[in-house]
Design a protein around this nucleic acid. Structure first.
Lengths: 77, 77
DNA sequence: GAGAATTTGTACGTATGTATG
DNA sequence: ACATACATACGTACAAATTCT
């Protein structure tokens, strides 16, 4: 869970959480991640934070995002 | 000037404008760029747009930003 | 050194547009 | 057509770092 008292910016915290979930196989290659609004509710952060977290994971090549659909775990890497 | 009718996202438009100004020598290596609030006023965009434009230029290695100071034209590249 | 002003950093909320289901 | 989901842009508030008085 993200920690508002931890000085680490929330997007980085959330990215770490999702990265760990991917690496532990909770989301497999090609699987969709939860939607932005779902992540907002589940983690108690704003949509902006969720989007920045996704941006981090996209930059790392871990996920790809498709407008109108979802963010998916990248197949290649 | 940024163009709200141009479908190109405003941060990319502004980044292009600043990149051109740097390449044309308007801002030299080590020079500070205008502050965020100045760019907001001069270009008629929100602060978020200015910050995203700077993020693009940082990613390109063209500028470096220091909290409480300014963004500066990178010396190295 | 203290305090105010300036500047960048983080986070939130809202509105509207675009693409997909 | 409607609902869902991501994209862009605005505004606000406060924190943190720096600079100026």
């Amino acid at each position: 869970m993200v920690d508002h008292l931890d000085p680490t910016p929330l997007p980085r915290q959330l990215a770490s959480i999702l990265r760990a979930a991917i690496e532990e196989g909770e989301y497999q290659r090609g699987d969709p991640l939860p939607s932005e609004s779902t992540l907002v509710q589940e983690h108690g952060v704003s949509r902006g934070v969720v989007r920045q977290a996704m941006e981090i994971l996209r930059y790392e090549g871990l996920v790809v995002t498709i407008q109108g659909r979802r963010s998916y775990v990248a197949r290649t890497r």
